[in-house]
Design a protein around this nucleic acid. Structure first.
Length: 472
RNA sequence: GCUCCUAUCGUCUAGAGGCCUAGGACGGAGCCCUCUCAAGGCUUAAACCCGGGUUCGAAUCCCGGUAGGAGCGCCA
């Protein structure tokens, strides 16, 4: 049997981190077993679903490279099918009409809560042999309820949490079609999972309580339920639930923060899943090694520091062709023109070891692509002094006369100059750094000047000299 | 309230009864290297929620507490 998994977000917002991890697990599990990974848009709630959210989800999935193996399924395009199944269930007696109004239901719940009972439908419209149903009220559009088995137990062999047992007596008859005829979530999920041939449902553990109901519907339909794997949720750094109000960010915001998609995937896969002591996985390794046995059943906190570390590992080692487009995107985002400076491959090579994110890299590389807007105040005060102005002035002459503008010749020239003055390299390099980069941090000074080019270097050195002298 | 889930360093985790003096990673501390920032190397502090069982032996199995969480919609 081929494994078929799916990711089924409801388009009410962007693709957040928890959803992305669920999608990743589903994707990996399918790939691991040579199966298919499908996408389904659960948009039956027309009030809250938006096209913008659908697009945002696709955008996030695309950025992460989580491609589905077929066109996405939209629930709103399957209403005819749902209607047919509901008719069939009504016919078979596994579903029935219920004429309770929302107000009656509300009252029922309140009374039950007051009695400290679990709020549930009392089954007043549920047909039973020999039972007298209430008279059908005029002007009430009925909903359709699923006739859940009254007795027995539902046993879920969850691939992550193990055996979970629910008593059918705990389950009430859920609504599968609203008064306006539109189907509801738990019902659509079953019909879709059945029709799509889903073999493994990997989803957030906020769905465990829905699972027995869904299994019962599967059975009422004469279908075999898929296997389930409920992944625990991701908490914020403080251990509190992630929500829009509380630190839940869309994956695209992580892009803006300077994460590489592969790094994001790697951080996410290790959040809850492990393979011995291994921390870093290529996508291929994830596919080869991912399994549900080693997915943790307990919730995990999102640790930004660790995420940064993973990203840094990727920044340092990823093939340039994977970094270039992302870095280019960040440069432009800062209003910089990548054409107005050194080749970005060279800048990445020079910067990758010293930046945890692409955003940081772009900010630290600004001086390669744009004129200085000023000097860092502290750095200038410390390094752009009267003495260093003399050094810089001398350097302008030396560097202008350099036969070749290469890192090697620059290195020789600068160290030679420092020695001739009886100074440590730092005494010379730091003022140069502030002069050309505007701050006391940059790649090795020979690299920096080489990448910046002769013209810009000399001009900035001279400008720094003027700056110092103009101040006093 | 009811049902269900979870519980190893601050964080992510390894651990499937003896291999555990509980391992790795992030972060922290210290040292080395060094033109800045990094990177790298070395060292170090830091955890089995509590209580009972089962067993020759428990972080691992069972029960009970405690704590956290999820669900209880004509939302998904």
């Amino acid at each position: 049997m081929t494994v078929v998994t799916r990711f089924a977000p409801s388009p009410t917002g962007f693709l957040h981190i928890g959803g992305a991890r669920t999608a990743l697990f589903s994707y990996l599990y399918a790939k691991r077993h040579g199966g298919k990974f499908l996408l389904r848009i659960e948009d039956t709630d027309r009030e809250r679903s938006t096209q913008a959210a659908v697009d945002a989800i696709f955008e996030g999935m695309a950025w992460l490279g989580l491609h589905a193996d077929a066109e996405p399924v939209y629930q709103t395009q399957r209403f005819d099918r749902y209607k047919a199944v509901i008719a069939q269930m009504l016919e078979a007696g596994t579903a029935y009409y219920c004429y309770c109004t929302k107000e009656e239901l509300e009252q029922m719940r309140n009374e039950q809560m007051a009695r400290k009972e679990k709020p549930r439908y009392d089954g007043r419209w549920r047909p039973e042999p020999g039972k007298q149903l209430p008279p059908v009220p005029a002007g009430v559009q009925p909903v359709v309820r699923f006739r859940n088995p009254a007795h027995g137990k539902v046993v879920i062999r969850d691939l992550i949490k193990g055996e979970i047992v629910f008593d059918n007596a705990e389950l009430d008859d859920l609504i599968i079609a609203r008064a306006d005829g539109t189907p509801t979530y738990n019902f659509c999920v079953v019909v879709d999972d059945m029709d799509m041939g889903i073999t493994h449902v990997i989803r957030g553990d906020d769905h465990v309580n829905n699972t027995p109901r869904q299994i019962n519907i599967f059975r009422a339909l004469g279908a075999t339920p898929p296997q389930y794997a409920h992944v625990s949720m991701i908490l914020g750094a403080d251990g509190a639930k992630l929500s829009k109000r509380h630190g839940a960010l869309g994956v695209m915001e992580y892009r803006a923060m300077g994460f590489l998609p592969e790094a994001m995937l790697n951080y996410l896969v290790r959040l809850g899943w492990s393979h011995g002591d291994q921390e870093l996985f290529t996508r291929q390794e994830m596919i080869e090694k991912f399994d549900l046995d080693h997915v943790s059943a307990s919730p995990a906190r999102f640790d930004m520091e660790k995420a940064y570390w993973v990203n840094h590992q990727y920044l340092k080692t990823a093939p340039l062709h994977a970094v270039v487009p992302e870095f280019d995107w960040h440069l432009r985002r800062l209003g910089l023109d990548p054409a107005q400076g050194p080749a970005i491959e060279d800048v990445i090579r020079a910067q990758r070891e010293r930046c945890r994110t692409l955003l940081e890299m772009a900010e630290k590389s600004r001086f390669f692509y744009a004129e200085l807007s000023g000097y860092d105040e502290k750095d200038a005060a410390k390094h752009l002094t009267a003495e260093s102005a003399d050094l810089l002035e001398a350097l302008v002459g030396i560097l202008a006369a350099l036969p070749a503008w290469t890192a090697t010749s620059l290195h020789a020239a600068i160290t030679g100059f420092a020695e001739s003055r009886g100074l440590g390299l730092g005494k010379v390099a730091q003022p140069i750094r502030v002069a050309v980069a505007g701050m006391a941090v940059s790649p090795p000074i020979d690299q920096t000047l080489f990448l910046l080019g002769r013209e810009r270097t000399l001009a900035r050195l001279a400008a720094a000299v003027r700056y110092v002298r103009g101040q006093s």
